[in-house]
Design a protein around this nucleic acid. Structure first.
Length: 818
RNA sequence: GCCCGGGUAGCCCAACUGGUAGAGGCCGCGCCCUUAAAAGGCGCUGCUCGCAAGAGCGUGCGGGUUCGAAUCCCGCCCCGGGUACCA
């Protein structure tokens, strides 16, 4: 008997070589043929080497890609790198090594490992976002947006990270801290580049209905966009003759407004207080609160503070003069930076009114008779004779109509979403292709002059302005329009711009004359299955959606490409000992070490087997060991069968063991197919293949015919292929001489799934008293008699009154006794 | 606070629309093969009582609906994530 040892170190490179030499996973852009499928894992950021999360996400992506291919679809699965960004630049500041050098080294390492994992990628489409041949088109897109007025410069209060010395987008500020480095963010008044994503707020919201994403990701996007319907109402300060519009979602409570509050940053606050006895107090308050950190100020539990301005405004609905205050619970960034305060029906206004002894007037009565503040719905009171008694939702519309008529307000919609701030005062990013001319002003670089390449500098450290500013020769350039002296924009783009369109470039990655060919994009887009981490639920996924809509509006994308990601899957984190892996905790599992020890197939399978892929899962070394044993058993059993069992067809006339083995094989086909197609239940799919193997090992197969054993083993290898491509391809090849990836996905034969008998559960009062073999298809009465005849059933039934008997055909009989 | 997940054996998890709780794996124990080890194979493995047959208990906690609940309803607790003076 030949010794068969499962040796991934021999098997894996051998099959990888076949796929590489035969260009197995490459797909052409030709139209027609089989149905397409674009399977994409979120672009990796190459830093150091791949971590366990990469192994997981590609194991998922590759399983989907293989399953789609075997189901007859033409699959595009490309690969690239999100290569610009801060870690490489910070590394450069520390070591002096050019970010390009460290980035390219990391890319080489990522590429090497991805290949070692045997991911079925079309490598001809590979690129990295820091390559001029890519960012040339990033710049081109920027110019398209600029021409359309969707990229613009404005001075605004922006979030500044003092540690990274750059501005940040709103989306990159988490709890008042920099998303990257965790430093507390400051506010600065600066002129910066913005992309007009707010123009798309409604479409970004509405089109969420058209895509299959996890509901919680959609909810996060909806919350981020934060659409509120209400009204804008103008309150007039008669003394100074200035109108102050406010936004409110509750115009129905206008009659309950008893004061008016402005944000400390509101430009008029000091002007309003000037000349009143409050002036000094207001100045002190503003200085104090503006200097507060976001964290201090954002604390809801903190008692309300503020100062009266010594002025009043007039409530347009009743002519009442109400006092003005400045208070830090009002934010300049939202609405108009000023609010009407209705203490009876808003918790925050209520707390403020209590602290400052301001009258509280109920204008909506609570059907449940609860206490104030009452934020709910009910009939209006204390408002206006025409409105009192009316349900507040109805009154809301009447009030808005009235405001509209006398010009003191109108229905309005407000969003939380801000325009996307894209300039960064950093070196390692895509240069913004704009030139400032003394005569012509802001001029876009001519399309033919793209890319504007990053200049070489010696000092990467940001000093409040971009390191690019030091490259004098590069900065000084003739004006593209008049040829006069001009200077280049020295800020670079947020790296999220690079990753907002990369999936389009994959469609037509080698096109040198355009970012993409519209027809080619139409052939591949949208992405049928997008896979990545939830951490991008807002940032990347929102920006990319915005890009598609804008580019489509500008005619650069087919009108149908409104949503880039038709289906999204977000995978959970791999932890170790219950904690996120980190160097400081010393609990890091490196994919490299696992692959070295057990091979890629084991690493990939174990990570899918560990639990549902959308959930977090804890790594266990023992579990990986077990998976390696299983793959070894499968491969060995197949390899031995290939030489020891005659290659006979499955006999028509199966013996009992043969029938059992065949039934299990067809059961596994159904189970794995359902788990792959319906949901990403790879863990249970692999468990089903394990069950199948457990039936056909030499010790378990009994006297099953060689044909049925070979069939079962071939089926197991075929089903395993999406998860462990090398071992599965090898086992399948040994058994059949064929290439499993060229075979269609197996189909089950219902004839094998039928059985003559089933296990009938016999219950008394819902408690299991016996289990017996019963004939399939037996009548209810027959099952009932059969069950009640069992001795242990009798023991629990005899002497008691049978009230009724429930029969669930094919499952159980339950006797209800008293 | 609000919005999502999640809570099932020593551990990771399974159980599709209410119908045998614990598939599969890990760990552990026993055995076989071996001079021995590694590798591999076979078997056992929720708790309590019992020689056994069997009985009782068991899906975070407390109630409820039902012939029957991990699954549905009500009220809580714990863990993880997101988010928040957004008017």
């Amino acid at each position: 008997m030949a010794e068969h040892r499962y040796d991934p170190k021999e098997i894996e490179p051998r099959w990888q070589q076949v796929w590489e030499q035969e260009h197995t996973w490459e797909v052409s852009n030709d139209a027609g043929g089989a149905e397409k499928s674009y399977v994409l894992v979120m672009l990796p950021y190459p830093s150091g080497e791949p971590h366990i999360g990469h192994l997981k996400v590609y194991s998922v992506g590759d399983a989907v890609a293989h399953f789609h291919r075997r189901s007859g679809r033409r699959v595009l699965q490309p690969m690239g790198y999100d290569a610009f960004g801060l870690p490489a630049e910070n590394h450069a500041i520390k070591t002096g090594q050019h970010p390009r050098a460290s980035t390219n080294a990391a890319i080489a390492e990522f590429r090497r490992q991805f290949r070692e994992w045997g991911i079925s990628v079309d490598w001809t489409r590979e690129f990295a976002t820091h390559e001029p041949r890519y960012y040339r088109w990033t710049q081109w897109i920027f110019l398209q947006l600029f021409d359309a007025g969707l990229a613009y410069r404005k001075e605004a209060a922006v979030k500044w990270c003092p540690s990274d010395a750059t501005v940040l987008a709103n989306e990159q500020v988490i709890d008042g801290r920099c998303e990257r480095c965790g430093a507390e963010v400051e506010v600065r008044q600066l002129e910066q580049w913005f992309l007009r994503i707010t123009d798309y707020a409604d479409r970004l919201l509405d089109d969420l209905e058209t895509i299959e994403w996890p509901e919680h990701v959609k909810i996060m996007q909806r919350n981020w966009i934060g659409r509120s319907e209400g009204a804008e109402v103008t309150f007039r300060c008669e003394e100074l003759g200035i109108d102050y519009p406010v936004f409110t979602t509750r115009p129905d409570t206008l009659f309950g407004a008893t004061f008016f509050v402005m944000a400390p940053e509101h430009p008029d606050v000091l002007r309003l207080a000037a000349g009143t006895e409050r002036e000094a107090e207001v100045r002190d308050y503003v200085n104090r609160t503006v200097g507060e950190s976001a964290e201090e100020r954002g604390d809801v539990e903190k008692p309300k503070t503020g100062v009266a301005l010594g002025r009043t405004v007039t409530n347009p609905v009743n002519g009442e003069a109400i006092p003005m205050y400045v208070a830090d619970y009002v934010l300049m960034e939202y609405g108009t930076g000023a609010i009407m305060a209705v203490p009876a029906h808003d918790e925050r206004d209520h707390a403020f009114a209590e602290a400052f002894g301001i009258p509280i007037r109920r204008v909506v009565s609570d059907p449940a008779g609860g206490e104030l503040p009452f934020p709910g719905d009910g009939p209006l009171v204390n408002s206006h004779p025409d409105l009192d008694g009316l349900h507040n939702r109805e009154a809301l519309h009447r009030i808005v109509e009235r405001l509209d008529r006398d010009g003191s307000g109108h229905g309005s919609v407000n969003y939380r979403l801000r325009d996307w701030l894209v300039s960064r005062q950093r070196y390692w990013g895509c240069p913004i292709p704009i030139v400032y001319c003394e005569r012509c002003g802001m001029v876009p670089v001519a399309e033919g002059d793209l890319p504007v390449e990053l200049p070489e500098v010696t000092d990467y450290k940001p000093r409040g302005q971009s390191p690019l500013a030091a490259a004098e020769e590069w900065v000084n350039t003739p004006c593209p329009r008049c040829g006069g002296p001009a200077r280049r924009e020295t800020d670079t783009m947020d790296t999220f711009v690079d990753s907002s369109w990369y999936f389009l470039r994959y469609c037509d990655a080698t096109n040198d004359s355009a970012a993409w060919d519209k027809d080619v994009v139409e052939r591949w887009m949208p992405i049928d299955q997008y896979i990545g981490g939830v951490e991008h639920a807002i940032l990347h996924l929102l920006y990319a959606r915005f890009f598609c809509k804008a580019l489509s509006d500008l005619g650069h994308l087919p009108a149908g490409v409104q949503e880039p990601f038709a289906r999204l899957f977000t995978q959970g984190m791999i932890t170790r000992d219950g904690a996120k892996m980190s160097k400081s905790k010393g609990n890091v599992v490196s994919p490299e070490a696992i692959v070295e020890r057990y091979g890629a197939d084991t690493a990939r399978c174990y990570i899918l087997f560990i639990g549902p892929p959308d959930q977090d899962a804890d790594w266990s070394d023992g579990g990986a060991e077990g998976m390696h044993r299983f793959l070894g058993r499968l491969w060995r059993t197949a390899a031995e069968a290939a030489v020891e069992l005659p290659d006979e067809p499955v006999p028509d006339d199966l013996n009992a063991d043969g029938r059992r083995v065949m039934r299990k094989a067809h059961w596994a086909i159904d189970k794995v197919t359902a788990d792959m197609a319906g949901r990403f239940a790879f863990n249970t799919a692999i468990a089903a293949i394990m069950e199948l193997i457990n039936e056909v090992t030499p010790g378990k197969r009994g006297s099953a015919e060689p044909g049925s054993v070979r069939f079962a083993l071939g089926t197991a290898a075929s089903l395993l292929f999406p998860f462990a491509p090398h071992a599965a391809a090898d086992a399948y090849h040994r058994l059949t001489g064929a290439r499993v990836w060229e075979e269609p996905w197996p189909a089950s034969d219902p004839a094998f799934l039928e059985a003559d008998t089933f296990e009938l559960v016999c219950q008394v009062n819902g408690k299991v008293r016996d289990r017996i073999e019963a004939p399939t298809g037996a009548a209810d009465d027959a099952l009932r008699e059969l069950a009640l005849a069992q001795p242990n059933m009798r023991a629990h039934v005899d002497g008691r009154e049978i009230i009724k008997v429930i029969v669930v055909p094919g499952r159980l009989v339950n006797a209800v006794v008293r």
